[in-house]
Simulated assay, not measured.
Amino acid sequence: MAGIIETIKFAGTLVLALPAALAGLELLLLRGQTGFGVALLGLAVGLVIAQHWLTMPTDIPELLAERVMGTIAKEPDAEGDDEP
């Protein structure tokens, strides 16, 4: 389940990727400029993939905070299975 911070980061990436993708589609399909169209589509896809897979230096404090919170607030085990 994605957190609110990850959702906001993804939305920010889409703000940059969608105009490039739409311009690439227009150049590719309507204007016949395949080179620029494919390049812009590749850029848009690359932005989304890079945001999803790469860890940026600004993400390190967030990752550390998630790890600390995971060790502090562990989910309770399923109790009550053995008791009547």
Rank of each mutant, 00 (worst) to 15 (best):
73 A>D: 13
68 V>A: 15
81 D>L: 11
50 A>G: 11
31 R>S: 04
4 I>K: 01
5 I>A: 04
73 A>I: 03
46 G>Q: 02
33 Q>N: 05
15 V>A: 14
51 Q>T: 13
26 E>W: 15
49 I>K: 02
73 A>G: 05
72 I>K: 15
73 A>M: 11
69 M>R: 14
20 A>K: 10
45 V>Y: 05
2 A>T: 05
4 I>N: 06
32 G>F: 14
26 E>P: 04
30 L>Y: 11
59 D>A: 00
43 L>E: 01
9 K>Y: 11
71 T>C: 04
59 D>E: 15
22 L>M: 14
79 E>V: 04
72 I>A: 15
11 A>L: 15
1 M>D: 02
26 E>Y: 14
19 P>S: 04
63 L>V: 11
64 L>K: 09
77 D>M: 02
68 V>F: 08
77 D>I: 03
75 E>G: 11
35 G>C: 02
57 P>I: 03
62 E>H: 09
60 I>K: 14
45 V>R: 01
42 G>T: 08
24 G>F: 03
11 A>W: 02
30 L>T: 01
32 G>W: 09
32 G>N: 00
47 L>T: 06
21 A>N: 00
4 I>M: 07
28 L>C: 01
77 D>V: 05
65 A>N: 11
54 L>N: 05
6 E>D: 14
37 G>Y: 04
14 L>H: 00
78 A>E: 13
42 G>E: 08
58 T>P: 00
53 W>T: 12
16 L>H: 04
3 G>H: 13
43 L>H: 02
73 A>W: 14
2 A>I: 12
26 E>L: 13
35 G>V: 01
77 D>A: 06
78 A>C: 01
41 L>E: 00
64 L>E: 15
70 G>L: 12
25 L>E: 12
12 G>T: 01
60 I>Q: 15
17 A>H: 02
58 T>G: 06
15 V>I: 14
40 L>Y: 00
38 V>E: 09
52 H>V: 06
50 A>N: 12
28 L>F: 15
57 P>N: 05
16 L>P: 05
17 A>I: 05
70 G>T: 10
37 G>Q: 01
69 M>N: 15
17 A>F: 07
34 T>K: 12
56 M>Y: 10
49 I>N: 04
42 G>K: 03
12 G>Q: 07
5 I>F: 10
5 I>H: 09
66 E>D: 13
81 D>V: 08
55 T>S: 09
64 L>T: 12
9 K>G: 05
14 L>V: 08
27 L>C: 06
46 G>P: 07
68 V>L: 14
38 V>K: 09
77 D>R: 12
13 T>F: 09
34 T>M: 15
72 I>D: 07
54 L>F: 01
40 L>Q: 01
33 Q>P: 03
27 L>F: 13
81 D>Q: 04
24 G>M: 12
65 A>Y: 02
60 I>N: 10
55 T>W: 01
82 D>Y: 02
19 P>M: 01
68 V>I: 13
17 A>R: 03
9 K>I: 08
75 E>Q: 12
58 T>Q: 10
4 I>P: 07
13 T>P: 07
